[in-house]
Design a protein around this nucleic acid. Structure first.
Lengths: 252, 252
DNA sequence: CAATGTGAAGTAATTCACAGCG
DNA sequence: CGCTGTGAATTACTTCACATTG
């Protein structure tokens, strides 16, 4: 684990808050839609509504990028699209590799949103020799043996891991050793990476669990509201899980 | 949009911070792994490392759930698994429906992590009549016409939207009208829902854009470090995007 | 005068650091 | 004596509210 400094070591740089960075793609998407409808300008109010945030937050976010609006008028759509794209580094194209071409990997390969915004699938990689050569989304799958060569020859710095959990850390290490410095991880594992490598994770199961938490709470509140002091009844379809495990352990 | 109060209306309830809730599934996963290896207890330090957070944060998180540890010893793995599962509402099973059985929907249907933790795929729904009856992951796809009936009969309160962006809002409205109160949205759109309905979104393209931002920054820093005052060179594979669009617009 | 841009105020999340307990 | 549990300090993020400006 080394001595601290796991995150952004306050690198002087024009520090745009992480929360703001995470919203820029949202604004960009809304702006792109407006642009396609040839809308020339938007107010912070309108754009915020389209992006699903409130307008003060949006204006504050934009203030970190610079003063790109016009008081009394709003923002020029095209201009803002360009500025945000540039800020996000989307004016260049980023070759990415997808490792693990199972159901999910194939879905990702076929996902249109990839190409549309500055990303290009440079290669599909899978450990199964039987997959090698088979085209997925028009791209022939290559064997894991080629991983380092592919990364190097294509100058890939972003990798997507869609392998089973058990293979993820190893794949991650090979990607990093080969020069990848940003990883999008779909495998349900915590990846450990050296400093300087960014990892973002997408985990279906975690999202569902978070929803379940809120769902349960809603059910509890309902019950509580209906009959104060009532036992909390599990919502709809109550039946317990398959392995009806009970605490059993109870520390002194 | 109504008048304010869009989020958690401070419902008295033992308020667990949202950030903590989002980490509970992570702890649970790490604990489950320990449990499978028959590890009886863990310290906050060890568990935190396994979950990829720091130990102070973990202890603070657990403190919202109660005092489940033993000073000088650590946490009882089994007991903690149970407590977190209960807190997340995973001791019951949640029937979910997946709407939109394209590449992604099929990948989700096949995803094992579903069943393992309290979720059960109650139905797969698609608008394409040609899909109807075809089994995906062993479950026959049903037509959208059946949506309301399926939700109702199975007591579904969680829906997963994996349709194209254009269909998402409409599907969402039907789900909500039929009684769904939690939605996991994979379509790249902002869904608008009435109060009391939770939406979480997963957007591949947004994650990649966030990575691109950091990636670009790294490249800039490298260049700056190497030669102070140098023009920032785009990293590897510089070539501009296909449509070499330039600002063009520049507000007075 | 409408709508941006932003200090200041408010709220949430993280981290520190150590008292207290087993 | 080691490790939890937690107040206090810190840092990050959001929201308010309004002076400023095209």
């Amino acid at each position: 684990m080394a001595t601290g400094r796991t995150h952004r070591p306050a690198t002087r740089s024009r520090g745009i808050p992480e929360a703001t960075v995470a919203r820029l793609p949202l604004y960009l998407r809304a702006l792109t839609a407006l642009s396609e409808r040839s809308v020339p300008t938007v107010s912070s109010e309108e754009l915020a509504a389209a992006a699903g945030v409130n307008s003060a937050k949006l204006r504050k976010d934009f203030s970190y990028l610079g003063s790109y609006g016009t008081r009394g008028v709003g923002y020029d759509v095209e201009y803002l699209v360009y500025q945000i794209s540039r800020e996000l580094g989307l004016t260049q194209d980023w070759p990415v590799v997808i490792v693990g071409i199972g159901n999910l990997g194939a879905a990702l390969a076929n996902y249109g949103g990839f190409a549309s915004r500055g990303f290009r699938v440079a290669a599909l990689i899978d450990a199964d020799p039987a997959m090698a050569g088979k085209p997925v989304a028009g791209i022939p799958v290559q064997h894991t043996d080629e991983l380092e060569k592919i990364i190097d020859e294509n100058g890939v710095s972003i990798g997507v891991i869609a392998t089973p959990a058990g293979a993820a850390q190893q794949v991650c290490e090979r990607l990093v050793a080969a020069g990848v410095t940003s990883i999008l991880n779909f495998a349900p594992t915590v990846l450990s990476v050296p400093d300087g490598v960014d990892v973002r994770k997408v985990d279906l199961s975690i999202e569902l669990q978070i929803l379940a938490f809120h769902e349960q709470r809603k059910a509890g509140e309902e019950a509580a509201a209906a009959e104060p002091g009532a036992v909390i009844q599990t919502p709809k379809e109550s039946g317990k899980g398959p392995d009806g495990d009970v605490p059993a352990v109870m520390p002194a």
